[in-house]
Design a protein around this nucleic acid. Structure first.
Lengths: 186, 186
DNA sequence: TCATGCGCTGACCGATCGGTCAAATACGCT
DNA sequence: AGCGTATTTGACCGATCGGTCAGCGCATGA
């Protein structure tokens, strides 16, 4: 793998685990066994390095959200969206972690602003579909909870089960949440 | 209100909205109309300022988690925990935002390390209660989703309904999630 | 009146940050 | 070999960071 790609992968891992602001170009260079100046040769700036590292995941998630369809009425579309969404979360854990944990407080960084805009779009799509406060919260908890649980599972000490097991479980729980209110009594 | 308390409140608001690392002592001083040196007169260090600002919320949340009881078997205890937990989330939105969004990537900061430990305790309490992967995910999504949705609602553009409306809705949704699996078919 | 101590400040410190630049090196092609 | 391009590097820059320090004004009380 080229140094160019290595730097991008190393940076992504560090940004996700230690934080974008807290990760210096010097540290990325050290981890890659090169110099800070060489990092800035391959990427015009630290911001650009972040943008390049997040781009594939953001592109995929954006496509999913844009093609969300009428998630309110059509149950089939809702389920299809759910599977694509969960797969994307699983495939881009590190970027999801970045989006969930750091985009809110770094909106001056272009890539994080883009991520924030994506989340706003996603919220809007479900906002329209939601009626009562309970329903809005249900969607919010489902989407945020799924993303956050996935992103935090590594850091919180508890190493999650393999993806093959997490995927169907995640879909099951989110399906319960996104289904019309079951009106269960307790 | 004394300058001492003012500084703590201003710092908390800035830490939550702009991020701990991104908030300089100079900015806190400017917002308070004083000097950076005076901030460091009232608080020995930036870390101490954060610790003091987060302490009340962390104390309360810790007490709730410690006295969680047997949340697995006793439905009454589960409900009582839920209400106390939701009330604490609502009462300390800013700190919740800090815990959820920043503690993961700043574990070298004592206050964040404490927050992370608290989250680990909470996870452990439900980890023991949980069996299958689905059940674990259900708990994770409920707790993380509730905290994150609450913390992010301000930033995501959508201003939430008043607390009197959010509180019962939040309890309802979390009750559904924490209840024994309803086994609904879709 | 004068000494004490609290609140506060500007000047300053060393460290680190992201980024620039010119020079050195490596390498493919004719 | 000789040339042009791509890559790499260390030295350096201005800015900003958290934190230190000597000293300021001022209220209090003996």
């Amino acid at each position: 793998m080229s140094l160019h790609d290595q730097l991008r992968d190393i940076a992504l891992a560090e940004f996700a685990s230690a934080g974008y602001a807290a990760t210096s170009l010097q540290r990325i260079a050290d981890l890659a066994g090169t110099s800070k100046a060489s990092v800035l040769y391959h990427y015009a700036s630290k911001e650009q390095l972040l943008a390049d590292a997040m781009a594939p995941a953001l592109d995929e998630l954006t496509a999913i959200v844009r093609g969300i369809g009428d998630v309110a009425a059509d149950r089939g579309q809702r389920l299809a969206f759910l599977e694509r969404f969960v797969d994307a979360l699983l495939a881009h854990r590190q970027v999801v972690h970045l989006i969930v944990n750091q985009s809110a407080t770094q909106q001056d960084v272009p890539a994080f602003a883009r991520a924030q805009e994506l989340m706003r779009e996603l919220a809007a799509a479900f906002e329209l579909a939601a009626g009562s406060t309970v329903e809005k919260l249900r969607y919010g908890i489902a989407l945020a909870g799924a993303a956050y649980t996935l992103a935090a599972s590594d850091l919180l000490g508890l190493e999650g089960p393999p993806d093959e097991e997490v995927r169907p479980a995640l879909i099951t729980v989110m399906r319960e949440l996104l289904a019309p209110a079951p009106e269960l009594k307790d």
